[in-house]
Simulated scan of single mutants.
Amino acid sequence: MAAFLKQPFAVMDMNSIINLFICFALPVVVWLLARPVLLRAQQVNPLRAQLQAFKYSAELFNRLLTDQPKFALPDEDWSIVLGNVEAGNIITMVTNPFCQPCVDTHEVLNNWLDNNLDIQVRIVFTANNDENDIRTPVARHMMALNELPDKGTVKRALHEWYGQKRKNYDDWAKGYPVNLDATKYYKIEKQKEWCDMAEVKATPTLLINGYRLPKEYQLKDIKYLLAQQ
């Protein structure tokens, strides 16, 4: 009887010992597992900061930029020119009116222009000047708006076009009435020829002063680098 009464206490004591051991051992095991990760993080974070500083070096950017192929700038006569016409930096954006990634790129450029960044932007469309190409009506309309004395009109039209969640030419065009002159349609053909010459394979394609933007950079990366040009 006495042995029976002692047995439960013996079992409880053993469980307590096991639980106590786990409580002490678990933090040690976690630390041993986490320590290599933490040490790597301590090494990686300074390295990442150094790489960022290296990336945002104006000297490195200029070297990578000028290592890219250089192309003649699209002519002012058949491209849309926005911003400071005397700016030292000219950004060429090749765009497709129905290209979703072009929306973000246009938004960045539009913000820069709104904030008086000392840049000039030239816009070229990838349209075939063909009635069967859905890009053609938009490109022709934009180029007609570009003929107006007030460049703010075509700038607003571009912003509103790319701001549409669902691109609808007819609805958009009602807000920007303009006479379409068929004798000016050659400008779309000039843009297509230039895109072929510049080996444009996708949109958006960006060039800085005629040099293709290096793949190591996104447009948003170079705002302050351009200021150091």
Rank of each mutant, 00 (worst) to 15 (best):
R63K: 12
L213R: 01
D130G: 08
F54Y: 15
L219E: 02
F4S: 09
V178Q: 06
L60G: 02
T95G: 11
Y217R: 00
L207D: 07
A10M: 15
K165I: 04
N62Q: 12
L47S: 13
V103E: 03
F4Q: 06
K55N: 05
D150R: 05
K184C: 03
Q229R: 07
D13G: 08
C23E: 15
A198N: 07
Y56F: 12
L225N: 08
Q164A: 08
V178H: 01
G210I: 03
Q43D: 14
P214R: 02
L207F: 15
K187Q: 14
M1E: 15
A127C: 04
P101M: 08
N209V: 10
G88L: 09
T126F: 09
T95Y: 02
P46K: 00
K190S: 10
P101T: 01
V121A: 05
Q52H: 13
A72H: 11
A58H: 11
Q229F: 15
L73G: 05
V37H: 15
G175Q: 02
N45S: 11
K184N: 04
D196C: 10
A202R: 11
E160H: 09
N19G: 10
L26F: 14
Q228A: 13
I91C: 01
P27G: 03
V44G: 02
D181I: 07
F24Y: 12
G163W: 06
I90R: 10
G152P: 01
R122M: 02
D133I: 00
P46F: 03
N96K: 06
S16N: 07
A41T: 00
V85W: 02
H106T: 05
G210Y: 11
C195H: 06
T205W: 04
W172L: 05
R35P: 00
D150W: 10
L38S: 03
T153K: 14
E193P: 08
P177D: 12
C195G: 13
E59P: 00
D170C: 09
T203I: 10
Y56H: 05
P36C: 10
Y162V: 02
N15Y: 15
T183I: 04
M14L: 15
N96E: 14
Q218G: 07
G152K: 10
E86W: 06
Q100E: 10
K192C: 06
L82K: 13
P46H: 05
A173L: 12
I188L: 08
L82Q: 11
P36N: 07
N111A: 12
I18A: 11
A49V: 03
N209F: 12
C195S: 15
T205N: 05
M12D: 09
L26P: 03
G88M: 07
D170Y: 14
I188V: 14
K55C: 13
A182W: 07
N84M: 14
F125T: 02
N168T: 10
L207R: 13
E107V: 02
W172F: 10
D13I: 06
L180F: 01
V108W: 08
T203R: 04
A87T: 04
A41C: 08
D130I: 05
E131T: 01
L219P: 01
K187G: 11
W31Q: 12
F61R: 13
L113Y: 09
V81G: 04
E59G: 02
I119P: 00
A3E: 12
K220R: 05
Y224V: 13
E59M: 00
D221H: 08
T66Q: 15
P27H: 03
R140M: 13
